[in-house]
Design a protein around this nucleic acid. Structure first.
Length: 189
DNA sequence: CGCACGATGCGCT
DNA sequence: GCGCATCGTGCGA
């Protein structure tokens, strides 16, 4: 295996820690005939006691994967046309997750301008469209194909910025959006 | 059962 | 900067 899956212990840490640790990790999508890999450069944490969290008011059919094993996917449809991809974390049964908002292209992308690639990798909806992450993958473990979260890390000199989350009505003030400072693939607020 | 509303992105001004 | 597409979900009735 070229890309080693993160061990499940990775996702058992407190969610805010997991979110920070996910920066630099690799999102690997195995398709029929191809491989797409992106390095996570922006994400947001959603905690169980947080009004912005989908699971804040209990378990439903949609958010059920959030209550499942850490290290699995939680994918849902927003605005009737885009998907959002999350990694379930925290202790089992505690519904918390990290939304992946942007990746830096690593493998499987055509040689294009940064401007064009950013359009494919930046923003939760576009990211899901590019990586073909849809609701039917919700609840899927991320240690084996078709979707793998692989170990990675920050490069020398890269630093993490914490900022308020984007696009939410409640919980606006919590600085639970994390991104790699000055990385060109981070979405513009 | 009906309906208001999103963890968004795009196109037009 | 603003409006809107588009539909599953999750409320309240």
């Amino acid at each position: 295996m070229k890309y080693l899956p993160c061990p499940v212990e990775t996702f058992l840490e407190p969610t805010l820690e997991v979110a920070r640790n996910l920066l630099g990790a690799l999102l690997v999508r195995y398709k029929e005939d191809a491989l797409i890999v992106g390095r996570i450069v922006e994400c947001e944490a959603y905690l169980s006691d947080d009004e912005a969290c989908h699971a804040a008011r209990g378990k439903t059919r949609r958010n059920a994967p959030m209550f499942g094993p850490p290290g699995t996917a939680y994918v849902y449809l927003v605005y009737g046309m885009y998907h959002c991809f999350n990694v379930v974390c925290a202790e089992p049964g505690v519904p918390e997750a990290v939304l992946i908002r942007a990746v830096e292209p690593v493998e499987g992308f055509p040689a294009e301008s940064v401007r064009r690639l950013r359009r494919l990798c930046s923003g939760p909806g576009r990211l899901c469209r590019t990586f073909e992450l849809t609701s039917d993958l919700s609840g899927t473990p991320l240690q084996a194909p078709p979707v793998v979260l692989a170990c990675g890390g920050l490069e020398q000199g890269e630093t993490i910025v914490a900022a308020p989350r984007i696009g939410i009505r409640k919980g606006k003030t919590k600085p639970w959006r994390f991104y790699v400072k000055e990385n060109p693939y981070v979405s513009q607020p």
